Simulated assay, not measured.
Amino acid sequence: MNVRLVIPFFLLIAAPMLAQAQAFTTPSTEELGFTYHIPSGWEATDAQSTLPEVKKQQTEKAKTDEEKREIACVQIPISAKRDDAPPSFLAAMALPFDCFGQVMTEKDLPEFAEGSSEGPKAIFDFGDPVYGSYSMGKHNIWIERAKGNPKGHPEMAYTLEIACSLLKKAAVCWMTVAGDDQALKEFEGTAVTLDGDFFPQLVPATAFEKEKKPAS
C-alpha cells in the first residue's frame, strides 16, 4: 500500500503556521477515534481550511487513483502555534479508512509514519534522528525525534517529534516542531484517548528506551 503521499500536507501547512496564527474552533476528532486537546498557552490555527488548495496542487501530481484517494481523504483536525522566540507548532493528521477505502495494518505503519515525518524536513535541516516504539493499551506507537533548525537559520534550534498509530477508523500522526524543551514537554504530556481508552500523556518518558532503525 502506498502511504507516502501525505508528505506534502505537513510540508505546505507548516510554513504558514509558523508565520501566522488564526484563532478558530478546533473540530472534534472523536469520530476519528481519538481526542487530543491543545495544551494551555497554545493558539489553535486553521490548517484544515488550507487543505483544498493543497489537495488541488497534489492531485495534479498524483500518478494513481490510490494516490488521489489519499489526497482527498487526508484531514488536519488539530493544529496550533505557541508564540515564543522561536515559535513552536503542533498538528494532528488523520487518514480515515472509510474515506480511503482500505484499512491499514501494522506492517503499513512504519512507511506511513516515515512518510509523514518527511514534510518538515523539507523546511528544516534535521540531523541524527532517533526512533522508538511503545504501546498504549492495544495500540502500537511509532515515534521519531530529531534536532535541527529552519533552513538558512542555524541560530534557531528546534526539535522535531512525530508519533503515529493505527486506530480502528483512521491512521493518525501527532507532530510538533518545538522551539524549546517546554514546548516539547507540553506536546508530549497532553492526555489522549485512543478508541475510547484514556492515557495521561501522548509520549511517555520511556518512549526512546529501545531505539531502533526505521523499517525499510
Rank of each mutant, 00 (worst) to 15 (best):
N2K: 05
V3H: 12
V3M: 06
R4Q: 11
R4D: 08
P8N: 05
F10V: 09
L12G: 03
A15K: 13
M17N: 11
M17G: 12
A21E: 08
A21L: 06
A23I: 04
F24C: 14
E30A: 11
T35V: 10
S40T: 14
W42I: 01
T45P: 04
A47G: 12
S49C: 09
K56R: 13
A62W: 04
E66H: 13
R69P: 05
I71K: 02
Q75R: 13
I76Q: 01
I76H: 00
S79C: 10
S79Q: 06
A80C: 07
K81D: 01
K81H: 10
K81E: 01
D83Y: 00
D84I: 03
F89V: 01
F89K: 06
M93T: 09
P96H: 14
G101Y: 15
Q102C: 07
K107Y: 14
D108K: 15
P110K: 14
E111M: 13
E111L: 12
E114Q: 15
G115M: 13
S116K: 03
A122V: 12
D125E: 12
D125L: 13
F126Q: 05
F126E: 04
G127R: 09
D128R: 14
P129L: 04
S135Q: 15
G137R: 10
K138T: 13
I141M: 14
W142T: 06
I143A: 07
E144N: 11
G148M: 02
P150F: 03
P154E: 11
E155T: 11
M156S: 12
M156W: 10
Y158N: 06
L160H: 09
L160Q: 09
E161I: 01
A163F: 07
A163L: 07
S165H: 11
L167K: 12
K168P: 10
C173R: 04
T176L: 00
T176C: 05
V177H: 06
A178I: 01
D180C: 04
D180V: 01
K185Y: 05
G189N: 02
A191Y: 00
V192I: 14
T193H: 07
L194M: 06
D195M: 04
F198Y: 10
P200C: 03
L202M: 00
P204D: 00
T206F: 02
E209T: 07
K213L: 06
K213N: 10
